[in-house]
Nucleic acid binder design. Structure first.
Lengths: 144, 144
DNA sequence: CTTGATGCAAATGGTTTGCATGTTT
DNA sequence: AAACATGCAAACCATTTGCATCAAG
């Protein structure tokens, strides 16, 4: 599979820009790639990483995420009021979340094409939505 | 204007449900109505409120907002990483924000009709989006 | 060797909570 | 009077920061 190949690409890109490739950066990127569909928070990442690298401190994870965000490789998504979650920039998706039971539906990026087209047409705005969360009632709860 | 009339309605509704109508609740709702287009945070609300009611404590503002949220009159919107902002539920709107210059375009609720219709059709999900923020580049910055 | 990243511990800042008191109904 | 909301101060928790040390180029 392409998993680790993609990762190497990212690391290469960093090195190319003159940034240092450290254990922490390697490991954080790897963990993000591995748990992309789990909306990991900073501690969750740290906890998982520490199973193999007990010396990687939580504060380092924060600093690394901040760095990667600045480099455009990672973005944050605040989940309503839950904690902040982190994702690889390549991992674009959106959510519909049920207010009542919390059920989550994952939406493809193109679900918002109508909105983005309209923004471009009416305002010249080039939308690049990364992580939107639409609230509402899922089928089951709406039936109540 | 209808401003205070709407407010009275909300207060009535609360009373009707058996909830108490206190100074704090009155004042918080009033301030939310007054500053609806400014995305106020909890302290900002507290600060403004305290100009006229110095005895309304910040923690009370938090508790009141929590209560109002539970009552469905208010919702929270996390702004990327900025602070949490609070809005009257009646005040539905969405944003397109420029990543580069921060310019904000306000979008009407119906801008998302295509998505909400699709969610209903494909998943039976009744979307009630309240405050979405689409990131991207505004016309000026995209031209760069 | 030089620059920049890390570990650790301590500080920060927004939000929550326990408890005695005041207010609404 | 009974139930509940409030003020206040202290607790909390996620995130940030200062500084001495360590690793990458």
């Amino acid at each position: 599979m392409g998993g680790s190949a993609d990762l190497d690409e990212l690391l290469h890109e960093l090195r190319h820009r003159g940034a240092r490739v450290t254990t922490a950066r390697r490991v954080v990127l790897a963990e993000l790639a591995a748990s992309s569909d789990q909306h990991p928070t900073a501690d969750q990442l740290a906890a998982r990483i520490q199973r193999a690298h007990p010396d990687v401190h939580l504060s380092t994870v924060y600093r690394t995420l901040e760095f990667l965000e600045g480099s455009g490789l990672v973005f944050r998504a605040g989940f309503g009021d839950g904690a902040t979650t982190y994702h690889l920039s390549s991992d674009r998706h959106h959510h519909a979340v049920c207010d009542q039971c919390g059920a989550v539906i994952v939406l493809p990026d193109r679900a918002f094409d109508a909105v983005t087209n309209r923004l471009r047409r009416d305002h010249g705005f080039e939308a690049a939505p990364r992580h939107l969360t639409i609230t509402g009632r899922c089928a089951r709860c709406a039936a109540t």
